[in-house]
Computed example of a mutant assay.
Amino acid sequence: MDGSEKPPRGSAAHRVEAALLEEIAAGGIAAGERLDETRLAERFGVSRTPIREALSRLAAQGVLESGEGRGMRVAQYSREELAQMFEAMHEIEALCARLASQRLTLLARSQIEVAQAECKAAAEAGDLPRYLRANEEFHLSIYRAIENPYIFEIAADFRRRTGPFRAKKFADAGDLVASAESHDDLLEKIFSANSNIAAEGMRQHMAASFLRVLAAN
Rank of each mutant, 00 (worst) to 15 (best):
T105I: 10
L107G: 05
A122F: 00
E81G: 07
A123Y: 00
A59Y: 04
F86K: 10
E124G: 00
S66Q: 13
Q76F: 02
M89P: 03
A117G: 15
V74E: 04
A54S: 03
S101M: 11
R103H: 05
A100S: 12
A97G: 08
L99Q: 04
E91G: 06
L58N: 06
A97L: 08
F86E: 15
A94K: 01
C119Y: 00
L58G: 03
E53Y: 01
L55E: 09
A100Q: 10
G62T: 12
R57S: 14
Q76H: 04
V74I: 07
Q116L: 11
L104P: 09
Q116H: 11
L95M: 15
M85W: 06
I51C: 12
G71N: 02
A100E: 13
A122T: 03
A88W: 03
Y77M: 15
V114M: 08
M89G: 13
E91T: 04
S78R: 07
L95G: 01
M85G: 15
S101I: 11
G67W: 07
R79V: 15
S110W: 10
E91L: 10
L55Q: 12
G67F: 00
V63C: 01
E118S: 06
L99W: 03
R73K: 15
E80D: 14
I51N: 06
Q76Y: 01
C119P: 03
A54R: 01
E113R: 06
Q102A: 10
E81N: 09
V74F: 00
R73T: 15
E93Q: 11
E65H: 04
L82P: 12
I112Y: 01
I92C: 03
H90R: 15
Q61N: 08
A121F: 00
R103Y: 02
A60H: 11
A54L: 10
A75P: 10
L95S: 06
A60Q: 05
L82A: 12
C96D: 04
V74C: 01
L107D: 15
S78A: 11
A75L: 12
A122H: 00
E65F: 04
E53C: 09
S66Y: 05
L106M: 06
C119V: 02
Q61C: 03
A121M: 09
A117R: 09
Q102H: 01
V63P: 01
E68I: 07
E93C: 08
Y77F: 15
A121C: 07
G69K: 06
I92Q: 05
V74N: 03
A97T: 08
K120I: 10
A60V: 01
Q61F: 06
Q84Y: 02
R52Y: 05
C96N: 08
I51S: 11
E124H: 00
E65Y: 00
A122G: 03
E68S: 09
E80Y: 04
R52A: 13
A54G: 03
G67R: 08
G67D: 07
R109E: 14
L104M: 15
M85V: 08
E93G: 09
L82M: 13
A115T: 10
V114P: 02
A83E: 15
Q61V: 06
E87N: 11
E124L: 02
S66W: 08
R52W: 04
A94D: 04
L82N: 13
E68M: 05
M85S: 11
E87G: 15
A121K: 15
G71M: 02
E118I: 04
G67L: 07
Q111M: 11
C119N: 06
A75T: 15
E53M: 13
A108L: 02
I112P: 11
A121W: 01
C119M: 03
G69Q: 04
